[in-house]
Design a protein around this nucleic acid. Structure first.
Length: 203
DNA sequence: AACATGATTCGCT
DNA sequence: GCGAATCATGTTG
């Protein structure tokens, strides 16, 4: 991304939680997310269409997915492969139970703390991939349900500071709806994770 | 109560 | 690029 593109992108408008989930996902890219002493600029997200999307955890209503059936702009955190945490922001309207998975970001503040949490990896990898992003930000199940637009929230979504060129493609690792292009990322950005198709997805 | 499955990551080839 | 690790969650019996 060009320096001019980044500078041009600043925009103090507040993220809107209601509407088409892919548009809500698009509006997340380039925004700041601050959690537990670390701030990232979001560079990669995925939209999940709730009750209308077989790949969404909310496709079936269970205790784990319950938070997505509530008010939007709250955090849905789940454990992946028993060890990692992944963070989503719920979108509205509530009956859809849609959410946006936060996959990657560039650390722009709290670098020392992020390095401490992530260990010895190159800075571009500090928050690359959903598990790594959550770890860098210190997000755990304790953050489940946090209202991210509240000014004093421990996990807080901020304003847009960049407007990168946005690329679109299929979501990583999903076995169902594997070709739906609901992954969005900052084109050419080194903090974005690699695409990987689910081995269980049909060819 | 037992079984199957990952919205992943890291290390090795 | 490929495969194993590893366990919470959901599903089936």
């Amino acid at each position: 991304m060009s320096e001019a593109g980044r500078a041009r992108g600043r925009d103090a408008s507040r993220w809107r939680p209601d509407g088409d989930v892919v548009e809500r996902a698009r509006d997340l890219l380039g925004r700041e997310l601050r959690a537990h002493g670390v701030t990232v600029v979001l560079t990669e997200v995925e939209a999940y269409g709730g009750v209308e999307d077989p790949a969404s955890h909310a496709y079936t209503r269970t205790p784990r997915s319950e938070i997505m059936y509530g008010p939007p702009a709250r955090l849905y955190v789940y454990r992946s492969y028993g060890i990692h945490h992944c963070a989503n922001i719920v979108t509205g309207p509530t009956e859809i139970a849609a959410a946006v998975l936060l996959r990657s970001g560039r650390v722009v503040d709290g670098l020392a703390l992020a390095r401490e949490r992530r260990g010895d990896v190159p800075d571009v990898r500090l928050a690359r991939g959903p598990g790594n992003l959550a770890q860098a930000l210190g997000i755990t199940l304790a953050d489940l349900g946090t209202a991210v637009l509240a000014p004093d929230a421990p996990v807080r979504l901020g304003e847009r500071v960049e407007s990168p060129e946005i690329a679109v493609g299929p979501r990583v690792g999903v076995s169902r709806a594997a070709d739906v292009p609901w992954r969005l990322w900052a084109a050419g950005d080194p903090t974005v994770s690699a695409y990987r198709r689910s081995p269980r997805a049909p060819a």
